[in-house]
Design a protein around this nucleic acid. Structure first.
Lengths: 127, 127
DNA sequence: TTTGAAAATAGGAATGATTCTTATTTTAGA
DNA sequence: TCTAAAATAAGAATCATTCCTATTTTCAAA
């Protein structure tokens, strides 16, 4: 049975109030700055717990640590190839066709999809 | 200027003749078994070089090391959430609409996309 | 309200994938 | 044949993440 913890509340608050897709290390530092006692291990453990529950997702970045996002509404991500910044992006996929095609082609029962775009963001373009 | 190396040729041969999406470690072991002198460092260095050239792509797996795929024809991947196996999958996205939508929503100039599905494969279903 | 078991924590050690370093070898054009 | 650039092997170093252990917190039942 899950029990309340101050540290978990702090992590959820931070994540649900930012659009910055922070890394675990960034979450840890911000909490520290704000006087939290949370340790790195606690940050990772709670993130994984929230991922299992489905409230948070992990975004894998090619060169660099994973980033985390609190999910209010389902969406996709765009990652800048130059600076690594992550943007939220809404695109409507035909999920039923997708599932059907995948099942026919490979026999895999699809539960989820990760649709990530890569490109160069505005800030990096003008440099 | 790029120079020929036996080790790079071995890596390319292995990758272009398998459908198994091996990890760097698996590539290293298979080469070793077949009498190659290639070291881990050499495997990683060449994989990254091939990725830069666009002939190989890296597939990020949630829990486990990256996997590598030689690209003959553009396609997507399906990853089994239970056993981690990677399947090739062909799905036709409307890339122009995608690029236009993304640019409007975020200002990012899209160069590439990663479209990965997750599910339970046939073998894992019947267990 | 006390109490005790389950859950959570801090802090640091351990792990595992990947990159880096250095001295040596190979490649390929002049 | 010679030489500079590129590549290599082997292992050290790094970095993100998980694991470990002793301690603390939570919460339901007595």
């Amino acid at each position: 049975m899950e029990k309340y913890s101050k540290q978990r509340e702090e992590i959820i608050n931070l994540l649900s109030n930012t659009k910055s897709h922070p890394t675990a290390e960034e979450i840890y530092s911000i909490l520290k700055e704000n006087g939290s006692t949370a340790s790195r291990g606690t940050v990772y453990r709670n993130l994984n717990q929230l991922i299992d529950k489905g409230t948070v997702i992990k975004i894998s970045i090619q060169d660099g640590p994973d980033r985390f996002d609190y999910i209010k509404e389902k969406h996709n991500h765009i990652i800048c190839l130059k600076c690594g910044k992550v943007f939220d992006y809404f695109y409507n996929l035909n999920e039923n066709k997708l599932k059907k095609d995948a099942l026919e082609q490979t026999g895999v029962e699809i539960l989820d999809n990760t649709f990530t775009l890569n490109g160069i963001c505005n800030d990096c373009k003008t440099e």
